[in-house]
């Protein structure tokens, strides 16, 4: 029915009644007010700890379910083995401050780890990012993703 010009005309005309989508400006105003306000909300250590505990419990129950599913998946994979294997490159991560889609897409999709920096980043930021990457990836890594 989408091929019917009368249907398309009716839908298009109806959409003219929709409200303006000005929410982006409203949110921007709220964020700006917060950014220029003197003080933020004091974070509650107790709430934070409760959240961590809740996350652990939630993750724990999911873990038990996932163990069962994993066993089922292993049986299935034994019967239907993969043909291709995609590996995560164990080379050190690539750092870069690329800004074009042509440069960024292949880096983001690559199997080599990519550490993206904002343009104009300082040397001290780059150094800190290297420390963070080193702590996360370590010296030795294992292949964790297979297709």
């Amino acid at each position: 029915m989408l091929q019917d010009p009368a249907v398309r005309q009716r839908l298009s005309a109806k959409c003219a009644e929709l409200p303006d989508t000005t929410g982006g400006q409203e949110i921007a105003n709220m964020l700006y007010q917060l950014a220029t306000a003197p003080k933020g909300k004091k974070s509650s250590g107790l709430t934070y700890k409760r959240l961590l505990v809740q996350d652990r419990i939630s993750r724990g129950s999911r873990h038990v379910i996932m163990l069962g599913l994993r066993r089922l998946a292993l049986v299935y994979r034994f019967l239907n083995p993969h043909i291709k294997v995609q590996e995560i490159d164990q080379e050190p991560p690539v750092f870069g401050d690329q800004t074009t889609a042509a440069e960024l897409h292949p880096l983001i999709k690559s199997s080599t780890r990519f550490e993206h920096l904002i343009s104009g980043a300082s040397a001290s930021y780059r150094k800190r990012r290297e420390e963070i990457a080193f702590a996360a990836y370590g010296k030795e890594t294992v292949i964790t993703k297979t297709k």
Partner: peptide, 23 residues
Amino acid sequence: IAEIPAFMGIRCEYIPGKDRMWM
């Protein structure tokens, strides 16, 4: 996010999600 910096003139950073399984 690869599309954003050049077209919108906004500084951006890509952060690999946990789904990348890099750690």
